[in-house]
């Protein structure tokens, strides 16, 4: 009896929480389907008026993508999509490869100063990004990398403190005998990493990949700082083209339509990786 009522209460709370979290998304969907006037009204009035749409304007979506960016009509979206994909894929790949490799080193290779280096690496997590922003810009300008994708992509190949930490903790759980077996089977450290460690750390890789992907895909600040050419804009920069020069938004329905479109890959990726997440939690818990 107690259990029953407790679980009803639990579900009620969960539903309420979900509603709170989903409402903004719902609001975006609704506004993206309104006529320009209704959308403008909804943003001004807010409230329930924004939460439903009687005659969905599906044409808002092609219109929004057509107006996105500053290039020729329709080109803006395609360019920005390509840029986003290139940067995000490279960054994700770089982060996974480098973080797992460094994590393996910290977890398994005994070398002089490894502890100190690990602590320093953890320390970098405490630095707010704003602190390093200007020195980094000066560094990359010195390298002549401003106005290229390099400042956005190359750092990923040098690891990420948080993900390295996560890999290290996970790799430390891998039985020593497994690595010794691999050594006797003729593998060096790189071989062990590729053939044994990476397949066994799939859950960490899923988390690393999804977080990095979403973070990079949605990143606004770094592309804004380093990319200046119009043809280099990523999707998040291109969305900004819906603001007028005074910072106001005139076509809020199109902004919402375009924003929702750019969100799609992240949502799909999360759904695809969900199984890995849950498997990872289970696998960590049971030895075997």
């Amino acid at each position: 009896m107690r259990r029953g009522s407790a679980s009803i209460l639990t579900y009620a709370l969960l539903v309420a929480g979900t509603a709170v979290f989903l409402y903004p998304l719902w609001w975006m969907v609704m506004v993206s389907l309104k006529t320009p006037e209704a959308a403008q009204a909804a943003t001004v009035e807010g409230g329930f008026a924004a939460a439903w749409v009687a005659d969905p304007q599906w044409s808002n979506y092609p219109d929004a993508l057509g107006e996105m960016g500053s290039g020729a009509k329709g080109r803006g979206f395609v360019d920005a999509l390509a840029n986003s994909i290139v940067i995000t894929v490279l960054t994700t790949l770089g982060t996974v490869l480098s973080s797992s490799l460094v994590g393996l080193a910290f977890a398994r290779i005994r070398f002089r100063g490894s502890r100190g280096m690990f602590l320093v690496m953890l320390g970098t997590m405490m630095l707010p990004a704003q602190v390093t922003m200007i020195p980094l810009f000066i560094l990359f300008r010195g390298l002549g990398w401003v106005d290229t994708f390099l400042p956005l992509v190359v750092p990923a190949f040098f690891g990420n403190a948080f993900f390295i930490f996560m890999y290290r903790q996970f790799i430390a759980q891998v039985p020593e005998a497994l690595l010794e077996a691999a050594r006797l089977d003729g593998q060096g450290w790189l071989g062990m990493w590729w053939h044994v460690i990476l397949p066994l750390t799939k859950p960490v890789t899923a988390i690393t990949a999804v977080f990095t992907f979403i973070g990079t895909w949605n990143d606004f600040l770094a592309p804004l700082i380093y990319l200046q050419g119009d043809d280099q804009a990523t999707l998040s920069i291109a969305l900004n083209s819906f603001r007028n020069q005074y910072g106001g938004i005139t076509k809020v329905h199109l902004l919402m339509a375009a924003s929702l479109t750019t969100m799609v890959p992240c949502i799909l990726l999360f759904l695809a990786a969900q199984r890995q997440f849950i498997e990872g939690l289970g696998k960590g818990a049971v030895k075997g």
């Binding site: 039985p175 005998a177 497994l178 010794e180 077996a181 691999a182 053939h195 066994l200």
Partner: peptide
């Protein structure tokens, strides 16, 4: 090895 050390994947 005692605990077999087979590659689980």
């Amino acid at each position: 090895f005692q605990n077999y050390a087979l590659y689980p994947h």
